[in-house]
Design a protein around this nucleic acid. Structure first.
Lengths: 192, 192
DNA sequence: GGGCTGATGTCAGTTGCTGACATCAGCATA
DNA sequence: TATGCTGATGTCAGCAACTGACATCAGCCC
């Protein structure tokens, strides 16, 4: 048996999500989170750069899944469809943790600072997708636009998924949202 | 003559931008900004909610211009084109303050916290655009998707504008980016 | 046995940010 | 002219986020 209880990081994540949910993000101090996890405030800041980051630690793996899926798409796949395939794979991952995702989303959407952090994580994902598209030979600005549009599709689908207006699962909502985007951007003035 | 020097808010904005540019955002304390403006730290926080917000005070007027332009677009204009018209009008406003925009962008893009704040301002703009589209009778999720796609177009165009790769002005870059988006989303699997 | 390692704790300090209260020029009005 | 109100600013005390420096000590290697 080790000197300390195992999985300090996981305990901190769990304690933080619970406390943010119970009494709100601003009303929770880092000292309280650490105490609930049986650790000290200083240790919290060794695992997480700041009080918000504790809710976003999984985003690294999420990004790897996105980029990996995009990279493995057949060469013949169009940029937008490759992005969509990656988003659907990521969506399937979230689908497996629906209840956790709901709880986390409730906490994040009820606080401005947490929403800021979520937005920059999504922007980072968009950058990573754009980079992976460039690796496939897609030129700018097409790469960035496909990536940004993909993230927009994802956001809209994600919100619907959380709201659970119907029984569609997240990958399905992503497909449908992409179709909606195609409908809304279709037509219009062509380039001169 | 008044009891105090006029335009305290403007002096704080100016001092903050200068100091953030000279020594970086994190290396600048609010007390230093206030001192440079001939005021105290406490007064800074009466004008701005936090240390970042001092760079974003103009975003309210920006949003009003966007929404106003969108609202005034002819009823026959498609959602995406109405969004584009609003973005071009806003782009024309920025075009008039090119040097200031550059300086501000340099400061913001060199710091993560400031980028977060910028992202949430853009997300707020997207929400406002989506709301204005709904007022025009556009249903969800088309309204949100058109707004989000529009903001993506704007971001890509804005980055090009700052980079000044060629002589195109911002409204022009926005039009071109929208055409690029249309090209990249065109085709693909249709809804079943 | 002795020393090294790595996760954790302790402590002091800076800074962002807030609430409560004080100050005081200018204005209105008796 | 005296009196009192208003609103922008200042002063002060305090909390909490975050950081750097150093201490602790079980387990492991030699």
């Amino acid at each position: 048996m080790g000197r300390w209880e195992p999985d300090a990081r996981g305990r901190l994540e769990e304690a933080a999500l619970a406390l943010y949910g119970e009494r709100g993000f601003e009303q929770t101090t880092v000292a309280e989170i650490a105490q609930r996890a049986g650790l000290t405030e200083r240790t919290f800041f060794r695992y997480f750069a700041d009080k918000r980051e504790v809710l976003f630690w999984g985003s690294g793996a999420f990004q790897e899944l996105l980029v990996g899926t995009l990279t493995r798409a057949p060469d013949s796949t169009s940029p937008m469809d490759a992005v969509a395939a990656a988003l659907e794979a990521a969506g399937a991952l979230l689908e497996e943790r629906r209840e956790y995702s709901r709880q986390r989303h409730t906490v994040i959407s009820s606080n401005g600072e947490l929403r800021e952090r979520e937005l920059i994580k999504l922007a980072t994902l968009a950058s990573a997708l754009a980079g992976a598209l460039r690796e496939r030979g897609v030129a700018e600005p097409a790469a960035s636009l496909a990536a940004e549009a993909g993230i927009a599709v994802f956001r809209v689908a994600y919100v619907s998924w959380i709201a659970e207006t119907d029984g569609r699962d997240l990958p399905r909502l992503i497909r449908d949202s992409l179709d909606d985007l195609r409908a809304v951007t279709a037509g219009g003035a062509a380039a001169d």
